[in-house]
Design a binder for these strands. Structure first.
Lengths: 207, 207
DNA sequence: CCAAAAAAACCAACTAGCCTGTTTGTTAAC
DNA sequence: GTTAACAAACAGGCTAGTTGGTTTTTTTGG
């Protein structure tokens, strides 16, 4: 059946790891941390349990690696949007719409939420994840500083304003789990944008 | 040993239920949903497993009941703070500080977060919880409308502004799991308050 | 008013299933 | 031939729900 092409060790490893991490994220997204089992991940990935434990000795290693990948993808996604905003391909309004859509529809936010919440009750996981999230935040803040400028830095810096906005998104996404009310979120997003543009402007627009 | 006071059936039931719900919330807070087991709850509550299943036939019934109680307590706590703000016992600044402290330090937020996240991967739980959260939001929005008035309703209503603020709190609390950085949150809170007072005022202050 | 039956509250052990990590064995690459 | 990658079965532990039995309160009927 499968065309058993000859692959180098490195190709085999990389592919298997990729399958496992993708399956981990997908399973977290689909059924939540509580129902995410190592065997389930292996099954979804189409990889044997032995191969799984070979590459990731235990569940935590798998989770941490998946988180690392998720964070990297998220930072890259946001930075790409921010770059479009800086070079004028996006206006401020559509930028925030896109970020919100990314948060709500993409796999990464809810998957990472599952992991973060799980980490709250697991000291070791928390310790492993803490540096990852710090790194993510650092990257995001660099993007914000580069992409937005504050109207009045003495009141609110662009970094703080965008962090606030991200926290609104986080909060809204949590709410969205139990309250799928598009009208409510549209109204919220509109207000957020209205308030934001009072305090910050994208670095391109110098009106 | 125990002074076996004679209690009515109703007293016995009520007390047992209270112990079980309190233990549920406490356990969710302490070890997270993933590590919250029905037997663990019974143990913490000092109640036999039989008594537990007598009052709550399965885990979900217990979780839903605990959530109901948590939401009620939270709404009451916020309303109490809001009442203090309305009658002048609190100023706007300390009110928001108090709400944030309530979110971060109280049991309710993280316990309910655990449940909400768990509900994301559990259709039945989600369906049972949805009306509870709708009710909670309705109560909160009533409090907001009563306690705050918008400076310019055409731009941002007080209801939306306060919902935004609550979402910021939600998001910050999620962040706080992996990033315990008091300075960061102080800065954030300050900015939030600064921005809020531009758009809404408590109903008492008519300056 | 009291004994006896009924019902509610409570207790403790058991079961079937799942999950994680381990171990032993096999195949593919180097 | 040696090492890395993969496979599959197994063991120990935990969990949720069930079941048969006990204690406490309430109801019933003489």
């Amino acid at each position: 059946m499968t065309v058993s092409t000859r692959r180098t060790q490195d190709q085999r490893s990389t592919e298997t790891r990729r399958l496992l991490l993708a399956a981990t994220v997908q399973m977290l997204m689909d059924v939540g941390y509580a129902n995410t089992s190592t065997s389930g991940i292996a099954k979804r990935a189409g990889v044997s349990r032995g191969a799984q434990t070979h590459h990731y000795p235990n569940k935590m290693a798998l989770i941490v690696a998946a988180t690392e990948e998720m964070f990297a993808n998220f930072a890259a996604g946001i930075e790409a949007l921010a770059a479009d905003l800086r070079n004028g391909a996006l206006d401020c309004d559509t930028f925030f719409d896109a970020v919100w859509k990314e948060v709500l529809r993409g796999d990464w936010f809810y998957s990472s939420l599952e992991i973060i919440v799980a980490a709250r009750g697991d000291t070791e996981l928390r310790q492993q994840l803490a540096p990852l999230i710090l790194n993510l935040h650092k990257g995001l803040e660099a993007t914000w500083s580069q992409t937005f400028v504050s109207v009045n830095p003495d009141v609110v810096t662009s970094r703080v304003a965008l962090n606030l906005a991200m926290n609104v998104f986080r909060g809204m996404a949590v709410q969205a789990v139990l309250r799928r009310d598009d009208g409510y979120f549209r109204e919220m997003l509109l207000a957020l944008k209205t308030i934001l543009v009072i305090h910050v402007r994208p670095t391109t627009s110098n009106t």
